[in-house]
């Protein structure tokens, strides 16, 4: 029964990983950009949440109303002001600029918020749970995270396949040169995609801040989890990313059940196993 419980909790954890991964998957899909600062932007959103809670005394979930638009705005500015300059044939500029950005964000957060461990307090929500058969219980908070991940990915699917901007995103993804010929302003489209990605990062960051302890330097580890979920799921498929996140979550939960020290290692090994057996991921849609 312990093992069933580990798998159930792993699925819940996977919801958070899927939220980490969705932004990464989205911007890679639209503009083939791999953002090495992705994890640090999630942590930045978490600290924005801390600042809003401490400044205005709001409930952590209500801070989403402020943090999501703030991160979206930051994403738009970041893409237009900085990252658009790095896009071109060469892979070095985007990688090195986002890597530099990652180090800068971490150290700005260290200077501003110190290296102390933080957490957002969500009151009764943190401990509320539903009893299932056989002594397994599901916390309300992890369940909300998983449902939000499904909702965010479902929403993005609707945007991508049912709206005009989604059509433009897909066209730019398929062939940026032709999209430009059709009158698409690719700089603006890329910036909108980054805004959308960072809005998802904001949701991921706030939920992470309620679920777990965090410090300014945990960003790179979140980037690795996000990346692993994307690769396990297969490039370009958002539902694949959700599946990838859940597989990673289950692997980590099983690892933790074996020995608490090997939780993260078990996730990495599951990823490497997928890479060895099926390098294109489980549900690939794009070729890079």
């Amino acid at each position: 029964m312990e093992w069933v419980n580990a798998v159930v909790q792993g699925v819940m954890l996977g919801g958070l990983f899927a939220l980490f991964a969705t932004g990464l998957s989205l911007i890679f899909g639209v503009m083939r950009l791999v953002n090495l600062a992705h994890g640090d932007l999630i942590v930045l959103a978490a600290f924005l949440g801390v600042a809003v809670v401490e400044g205005l005394g709001l409930h952590p979930l209500v801070t989403l109303v402020i943090v999501v638009p703030a991160m979206a705005l930051l994403g738009y500015g970041l893409q237009r002001g900085l990252l658009n300059l790095t896009l071109g044939g060469d892979i070095l500029p985007p990688l090195l600029v986002t890597f530099g950005l990652s180090i800068v964000i971490q150290n700005v957060l260290l200077e501003t918020f110190s290296a102390d461990t933080r957490r957002l307090q969500a009151g009764a929500l943190e401990t509320a749970s539903i009893e299932l058969a056989g002594g397994i219980s599901i916390g309300w908070l992890p369940l909300i995270v998983l449902l939000l991940a499904v909702a965010v990915i479902g929403g993005l699917q609707l945007v991508f396949y049912r709206t005009k901007i989604g059509r433009i995103f897909r066209a730019t993804s398929d062939n940026p040169a032709v999209a430009r010929l059709m009158g698409v302003n690719h700089r603006h489209v890329f910036a909108l995609a980054m805004a959308l990605a960072l809005a998802v990062c904001a949701v991921a960051g706030i939920l992470m801040a309620i679920r777990t302890n965090f410090t300014p330097t945990i960003g790179p580890a979140r980037l690795l989890f996000a990346f692993e979920a994307v690769i396990i799921g297969g490039l370009g498929s958002l539902w694949g990313t959700l599946a990838g996140g859940i597989i990673l979550g289950v692997a980590q939960a099983i690892g933790a059940q074996i020995h608490p020290g090997v939780q993260i290692l078990a996730g990495h090994i599951a990823f490497l196993a997928v890479l060895a057996v099926r390098p294109q991921g489980l549900f690939p849609r794009l070729r890079d």
Partner: peptide, 18 residues
């Protein structure tokens, strides 16, 4: 080496963590 270009970068990072 199964990962291309930018994904190679993060892949090497994962292995170092392992």
């Amino acid at each position: 080496f199964r990962l291309r270009a930018a994904y190679f970068a993060i892949g090497t990072w994962v292995v170092a963590e392992v």
